[in-house]
């Protein structure tokens, strides 16, 4: 499968482009890094690729067709702050079920303990919560995973733990992964190819 963004332009205000003329493509099975200083639209591009935001110019295609407008979204985004990505009033089991049927063994691999399932988000640490967000995003129907500073707030051990699982699932399920991180070392460790937005983004 191929996820591609073609000639993406995006702006919030007139004459202030966040992205302009951006092309990016990710093949199934590939782990691609996306780098660039803050303000270069990395997160915006992610939101566009995941279908959260409509580009002002250009289009996002999945195997040549537009992203599906309803049903389970094959492109899943996990970002830095898990507490903003879950419903604070739901127990974790319900949040997980939101992603549809789940591979039970994944919970164990991610170190999610059974008793956490009955808890509310504020009863878990950021690291514990992020494991749930990763589990939810790694649904069997997911084809592409976009990780926007996914482990930036976690300790290095939890970071290594989560990425080990993501890499394994990506290999087994032939997922495409996009890694956004300000940590060069993490990008070098994970990615086979790196896209630099300072080069790709033609905003002026």
């Amino acid at each position: 499968m191929l996820l591609e963004a073609k000639q993406i332009g995006f702006r919030y205000e007139r004459d202030r482009w966040v992205l302009r003329g951006v092309d990016i493509s990710i093949q199934s099975g590939e782990i691609v890094g996306l780098v660039g200083p803050s303000g270069f639209g990395k997160s915006t591009l992610c939101r566009i690729l995941a279908g959260y935001e409509k580009p002002y110019e250009g289009q996002v295609l999945l195997d040549g067709a537009p992203l599906p407008a309803s049903g389970f979204h094959p492109v899943q985004l996990v970002f830095q702050h898990p507490e903003k990505a879950v419903n604070p009033r739901w127990r974790m089991s319900r949040t997980l079920a939101e992603g549809g049927a789940l591979d039970e063994s994944l919970l164990g691999q991610l170190g999610i303990q059974q008793e956490w399932l009955g808890r509310f988000p504020n009863e878990l640490s950021g690291g514990e919560l992020q494991r749930f967000c990763v589990a939810r995003a790694l649904n069997p129907q997911t084809r592409f995973l976009l990780a926007d500073e996914m482990t930036a707030m976690l300790d290095t051990i939890t970071q290594a733990q989560i990425w080990q699982v993501v890499k394994e699932v990506a290999r087994r399920e032939n997922l495409g992964v996009l890694v956004i991180s300000h940590e060069k070392n993490l990008i070098h460790r994970l990615c086979t190819r790196v896209v630099d937005l300072t080069i790709t983004n033609e905003k002026t």
């Binding site: 300790d155 290095t156 051990i157 970071q159 290594a160 733990q161 990425w163 080990q164 940590e183 070392n185 993490l186 070098h188 460790r189 994970l190």
Partner: peptide, 9 residues
């Protein structure tokens, strides 16, 4: 566990 070291979980 640092990525530039072992990246050991």
């Amino acid at each position: 566990a640092l990525p530039q070291n072992g990246f050991e979980p």
